[in-house]
Simulated assay, not measured.
Amino acid sequence: MSESIHILALVTIAEEKAAQLEKAVQVCAGHSLKEEACQRYEISRDAEKKGRFMVSEIWASKDGFETHLASKHFGALAGFIKEHGAELEVIRQQPLHPAS
């Protein structure tokens, strides 16, 4: 049995580009949720800092996560982030709660 992969991604972009990033993240989320290995793909916007978004992901396996990283929809989002100079921090988490 594979161990699930838990990811928290923080993306920050200039305020004037926040609406574009939000749309790009939502498009990627829609496709990601259809991936077989995707167990969670939740996006949220920072309530206090315009232009900062969080993506919380759970993937059933390392292979499933790597398939996601190679997908066309993730590539489009990564390209948008790079092209528009957004900051990206990806944190691989280890849940402490046994039911996670």
Rank of each mutant, 00 (worst) to 15 (best):
Leu8Asn: 10
Gly30Lys: 11
Lys82Val: 07
His84Asp: 05
Met54Glu: 02
Arg40Met: 14
Glu22Ala: 10
Thr67Ile: 04
Ile91Glu: 00
His73Pro: 01
Ser100Tyr: 08
Leu10Phe: 02
Gln20Asp: 11
Cys28Glu: 04
Ala60Lys: 11
Pro95Ile: 06
Ala9Gln: 07
Gln93Gly: 05
Val11Met: 05
Lys17Gly: 03
Ala24Glu: 07
Gly64Val: 13
Gly30Leu: 11
Gln39Ala: 13
His31Arg: 10
Lys17Thr: 04
His73Cys: 05
Ala76Ser: 08
Pro98Leu: 08
Phe74Glu: 05
Glu57Ile: 06
Thr12Asp: 06
Ile81Ser: 04
Gln93Glu: 12
Pro98Asp: 12
Ala47Asn: 15
Arg40Gly: 01
Glu22Asp: 11
Ala9Met: 05
Glu57Gln: 14
Ala78Trp: 03
Ala60Gly: 13
Ala37Glu: 14
Gly79Ile: 04
Ser4Thr: 11
Ala70Met: 12
Phe65Asp: 03
Cys28Leu: 04
Ile43Ser: 10
Cys38Ser: 15
Ile58Cys: 15
Ala70Phe: 08
Glu16Tyr: 08
Trp59Asp: 06
Gln39Cys: 14
Lys49Cys: 00
Cys38Thr: 12
Phe65Val: 01
His68Gly: 03
Arg52His: 07
Gly30Cys: 10
Lys72Tyr: 00
Pro98Ala: 12
Phe53Gln: 01
Gln26Leu: 14
Ala24Asn: 02
Glu57Trp: 08
Arg40Ser: 07
Ile7Pro: 02
Glu16Asp: 12
Leu8Glu: 01
Gly51Cys: 01
Leu96Ala: 14
Met1Arg: 12
Ala29Arg: 14
Ala19Leu: 09
Ser71Trp: 04
Lys50Phe: 01
Leu96Ile: 15
Ala9Leu: 03
Lys49Ser: 06
Ala47His: 15
Ser100Gly: 10
Ser56Tyr: 15
Gly75Val: 06
Glu15Ile: 05
Gly75Trp: 07
Ile7Ser: 02
His68Leu: 07
His68Gln: 08
Ala78Tyr: 06
Lys82His: 10
Arg52Phe: 02
Pro95Leu: 00
Glu36Asp: 14
Ala29Leu: 07
Phe80Leu: 02
Leu96Lys: 11
Glu87Lys: 13
Glu89Lys: 15
Cys28His: 00
Ile58Trp: 04
Gly85Arg: 06
Lys82Cys: 03
Val90Pro: 11
Ile13Trp: 03
Lys23Ala: 02
Glu42Pro: 00
Ile13Met: 05
Ala18Tyr: 01
Leu21Thr: 02
Phe65Leu: 13
Val55Asp: 02
Leu8His: 13
Arg40Asn: 11
Ala99Leu: 13
Val90Ser: 12
Leu33Pro: 00
Val25Glu: 01
Ala99Met: 12
Glu42Ser: 10
Met54Thr: 09
Arg92Ala: 05
Ala19Asp: 09
Leu77Lys: 02
Cys38Gly: 07
His68Ser: 09
Gly85Trp: 08
Lys49Tyr: 01
Leu33Trp: 00
Ile43Glu: 05
Met1Pro: 13
Lys62Gly: 12
Ile91Met: 00
Arg92Ser: 03
Ser61Phe: 10
Pro98Trp: 09
Val11Ser: 02
His73Trp: 08
Ile5Trp: 08
Arg40Phe: 00
Lys50Pro: 06
Val27Tyr: 06
Thr12Cys: 05
Lys49Thr: 12
